Simulated assay, not measured.
Amino acid sequence: MMKITPVNNSDGLLLFLLEQENYPQHYYKYRNFIQMINDSNYLVYKLVVNNNLFGYFILMHSGDDLEIIKFTIKKCYHQQGWGQKMLIYLLQNFSFNKIFLEVNEHNLAAQKLYLNHGFQIMRKIPQYYGNENGYLMVYDK
């Protein structure tokens, strides 16, 4: 059974461990998760399937818009449709005018997911990810 629910402080460690696993070079610190979970400017949600954490996303309010700060699925569950389910949930269950995010130019799977759900590439961001470029993507209701 799949559930997407808000995260609480007790979930912070699980998110931190998933973050370390998926992004061993650049991951959020545990205290950053706890701060975002407790900050009303952020919306932190987890995807749980059969009591196992499959992924999570972090949104930040920006006026009437939302920014996707993090959107991740555990690597062993990639390419199984979980990201799509999580993105559809996000688009259908939150109030916003626009959603925007930055994505690595080499992350073709993420770009495809967002493009298939109505996001558009607005511009290239040179060296956004260190030596790698990023794209600003926007979803407009």
Rank of each mutant, 00 (worst) to 15 (best):
I4F: 00
Y128S: 13
N22V: 12
K124R: 15
T72W: 02
L13N: 06
F54G: 01
I69M: 13
K98T: 07
Y23M: 08
A109F: 14
Q20P: 01
Y27D: 00
N116W: 01
V103W: 04
L53Y: 04
T72Y: 05
Q79M: 15
E19F: 00
I69P: 03
M2W: 09
M36T: 04
L91M: 07
K112C: 08
I37A: 10
Y114P: 03
L43R: 04
Y28C: 08
D39H: 10
N52Q: 14
Y77C: 01
Q80G: 06
F96Y: 09
K124D: 04
L101C: 13
N8I: 10
F16K: 05
I4M: 05
K3Q: 15
K70W: 04
V44Y: 02
K70L: 14
L91R: 08
I125F: 08
Q127E: 13
L113T: 01
S40A: 13
Y114I: 05
C76N: 15
K124L: 14
V44R: 00
L101I: 09
Q25S: 14
N9P: 02
L17G: 02
F96N: 01
L101F: 05
K74N: 10
Q25W: 08
F54Y: 15
L113F: 03
Q84H: 07
I68E: 01
L18T: 00
L66E: 06
K3A: 11
M137H: 05
D39Q: 12
L18R: 03
Q20W: 05
Q80S: 12
K70G: 00
L113H: 02
S62N: 12
D65A: 11
D11I: 06
L101K: 04
L136N: 00
L14G: 00
G12M: 12
E21G: 03
G134E: 13
K85G: 05
G83E: 11
P6F: 09
K70I: 09
N22T: 13
D140L: 10
Y56L: 00
H61A: 11
F96I: 09
N9D: 15
T72A: 10
K29W: 06
R31N: 09
V138I: 15
K112T: 01
K29Y: 06
V49Q: 04
R31Y: 02
L15Q: 03
N8A: 09
Y89V: 06
M137Y: 07
G118T: 05
P24V: 11
N50M: 11
Y89S: 04
N133M: 08
L66V: 09
K98I: 07
N41H: 10
L101M: 15
S62G: 03
Q35A: 10
E105T: 10
N8V: 14
N133K: 11
L59T: 01
K29S: 04
I37M: 11
L18C: 06
N104H: 10
H106E: 14
I34D: 00
D39A: 07
H78P: 03
M36Y: 03
Q25D: 10
V49Y: 11
C76A: 07
K46Q: 04
F119Q: 12
R123H: 11
Q92Y: 11
I73H: 03
V7M: 06
N50Y: 15
K70E: 10
L115D: 06
L90N: 03
K124N: 12
Q127R: 12
L115R: 05
F100G: 06
L90C: 14
S62V: 15
N41I: 03
L47W: 00
D39W: 07
Y23Q: 09
H61D: 02
L87T: 00
I68Q: 01
L90K: 07
W82V: 13
N97R: 14
N38D: 00
T5Y: 04
